[in-house]
């Protein structure tokens, strides 16, 4: 899964990248990797299905992302601007999205 050649570049920047699941409102950056590894079997769907759903919603490498809002309880879920769309998602489902944050 991770051996996807399109992610080769991303691997180099992976050190600096963070999981979307830990980002806070105001954080913005570029998606560098969308993986299929967290919580195997724990999403109700398998991780590669979760990955495909994320991809279908536009969580793809190269997309601009900004965290806009977060929920009141456990700061969950989060609302993000993804290119020109707004999407709400749970932090646990956002773990496999790696974001290279802009310098603040």
């Amino acid at each position: 899964m991770i051996a996807d050649p399109t992610n080769a570049e991303a691997a180099q920047t992976a050190d600096a990248a963070v999981r979307l699941s830990v980002a806070r409102p105001g954080d913005k950056g570029v998606i560098v990797d969308v993986r299929a590894e967290s919580h195997a079997g724990d999403h109700g769907v398998d991780v590669s299905e979760l990955q495909r759903r994320l991809l279908e919603f536009g969580f793809v490498e190269g997309a601009r992302i900004e965290v806009l809002h977060e929920g009141a309880i456990w700061r969950d879920p989060i609302a993000v601007r993804l290119d020109d769309m707004r999407i709400g998602l749970r932090r646990r489902d956002a773990e496999d999205v790696w974001v290279l944050l802009d310098a603040k």
Binding site: G41, D42, H43, G44, V45, L50, R53, L54, F57, P77, A79, M85, R86, I87, G88, L89, R90, D93
Partner: peptide, 13 residues
Amino acid sequence: RGAVEPFLMELPA
């Protein structure tokens, strides 16, 4: 059990 669907939802304009 474990059948919590991912929560991914567009927030339309």
